[in-house]
Amino acid sequence: MTTVALLGLNSLSFAMLLFVLGAGLTITFGLMRILNMTHGSFFLLGAYFGLAAWKLTHNFWVALLAGALATAVAGMVLYRVFLRRFSQLEEMAQVLLTFGALLVIADGALITWGGNVETQPPASFLRGSVHLGALTYPKYRFFLIGAGLAIAVTLWLFVARTRLGAMVRAGVDDPEMAKGLGINMPLLFLAVFALGSLLAGLAGALGAPYLGIYPGLDFEALVLAFIVVIVGGVGSIEGAFVGALLVASVDTATKTYFPNLAWFSLYAPMAIILAFRPQGLLGRK
């Protein structure tokens, strides 16, 4: 019983992190058709920015906020300076350009923060564990679950209920028509790219006390985000949520029961989903 509960909690907390990361990618990719290879780099930057802010203020919330916002600014710079000049048809150009940016950011982070694993403690009231009967579980993981759910609800409300969200949906469905209705598409794109980067940075800052921060984390995060988006369906926030849950549970369960197959567990759900539903669980054709 305890094992199952542990398994569930581990899956959930990992899933929430995956969701915040994947939601950012699915939004930018779904609306703008930009396959942003720096999405994982933004995850890493969010973690490092958060750590820097934590070292200055020793305040966990400031670290979260700083990680998210500074990364959003980095995303806006990348978009304004480089990506905006490519039309949506030039996907390959965007992939290679952002891959170049991935390498530059990775090396820049290595110069700035060094190659060691950095850790950042969570807020003091989130340290230690909770005891529930026979079960002992880290408080921070509970916090991750709560934070992920809160972000999911906020994002859903934003897309479904706000004017800006309606513009985003219009842009995804029919960019030409949206433009014709007077929606300022360049500005909308900039805002959406900033939102996508913000989510990646927030995921990084949230993940730092749980995963640690180290070179190579950027690429790991990128592949995870890809898998979540492929499984869930491109452009769908609900899809990212379901995809994150599925990927995290399969991965956690495999690592618990069949540790020898751990290398396979991230990719198996992707392969199976693609075989039966190439557009992803909640993606549209």
């Binding site: 150009a93 290679l96 350009l97 891959f99 170049g100 940016a101 530059v104 090396d107 820049g108 290595l110």
Partner: peptide, 16 residues
């Protein structure tokens, strides 16, 4: 020593 930076910049310059 910064070949990664140079390589990354190469990608960007080539595409731009």
């Amino acid at each position: 020593q910064r070949w990664m930076m140079v390589l990354g910049a190469t990608y960007i310059v080539v595409i731009l």
